[in-house]
């Protein structure tokens, strides 16, 4: 009773936070949806949605963006799962984990910039290709380099949730499975993987959503060959100044995000840095 009294006595301190929710969480999203119903001349219209759903360019762009996000997520998952699994078996997993997460503290733009040097015509990657006899190739501004760099940036965000769920796995389950005669593969596919699925889902969610919107990578590394939803939004807002169409694509991106969150069933937010648990 006394506790309740203490709480109701003053709520003034809660005002800034409530204002933040109203002004910076709810209002911008509503404004984005509102803006999507206006054309470039500021007239109310449904034309943006009609254009979007009738134009094969926009639909193909969306399919492409989802496809590339899928490839990036798949590549990241294939590298990260074994990493997380092996990490758990080392002597000092926390230290190794810290080392995996460290690169997320380096500015994203600098990491992208490094790959401009690595993948350039006479860069170290091409020197290596010449050395092993393949000869120099166009690496920068290709779809391959886009997927490679995106996966490189996302790996720590995939390793972290998977590692967390693997480290919670009780070794007794694995022992039981082996004692009952399961092969290594059966133990993995029937016991380990299903039990670590929540971590995998969290990782997919953490990687897939940002992959739909990485616009600086499509420009710096992908050479504008891959257009993601994010690139399209940036283009409409800052280059062609067609905010209505940009907002429409933004609404599509929000819908895609909600679908992914629904499919992966998690509401745990990804933090942009590691180390937040």
């Amino acid at each position: 009773m006394q506790r309740k009294q203490r709480l109701t006595r003053s709520t003034a301190y809660f005002i800034p936070y409530t204002l933040w929710i109203l002004l910076f969480v709810i209002a911008p999203v509503l404004l984005l949806i509102y803006q999507s119903f206006f054309n470039i001349d500021g007239q109310f219209t449904f034309a943006n949605y009609q254009t979007y759903f009738a134009s094969s360019t926009y639909l193909m762009m969306t399919v492409n963006s989802v496809w590339y996000a899928f490839l990036i997520t798949l590549a990241t998952l294939l590298i990260s799962y074994p990493t997380a699994y092996l990490l758990n078996e080392t002597k000092h997993p926390q230290l190794w984990l810290l080392l995996i997460i460290m690169p997320t503290w380096i500015n994203l733009l600098l990491k992208a910039y490094a790959f401009i040097g690595i993948f350039s015509q006479a860069g170290i990657a091409n020197q290596f290709l010449s050395f092993i006899g393949i000869g120099p190739k166009q690496l920068l501004f290709t779809n391959f380099s886009f997927i490679f760099v995106a996966a490189y940036i996302q790996i720590p965000f995939m390793v972290l949730p998977i590692y967390n769920s693997i480290s919670e796995l009780k070794p007794s389950y694995i022992n039981a499975s082996r004692d009952l005669g399961a092969t290594n593969w059966q133990t993995f596919s029937r016991v380990i993987f299903p039990l670590t699925l929540p971590g995998v889902k969290a990782g997919i969610q953490a990687v897939f959503i940002p992959s739909l919107s990485l616009f600086m990578l499509t420009r710096l590394i992908g050479g504008n060959k891959v257009i993601t939803l994010g690139t399209a939004i940036e283009e409409h807002f800052l280059t062609t100044m067609n905010w209505g169409m940009g907002s429409t694509i933004g609404v599509v991106l929000i819908v895609a995000m909600v679908i992914i969150m629904w499919l992966t069933g998690g509401r745990k937010p990804r933090s942009r840095k590691g180390l937040t648990k």
Partner: peptide
């Protein structure tokens, strides 16, 4: 509800945050 609202900006892609703030 408050926690869900709190997390919206954590899960939203940066582009959405940027574009909607620009409109705002």
């Amino acid at each position: 509800t408050l926690l869900a609202l709190n997390n919206i900006l954590m899960v939203s892609p940066d582009v959405i945050i940027g574009a909607s703030f620009l409109i705002f």
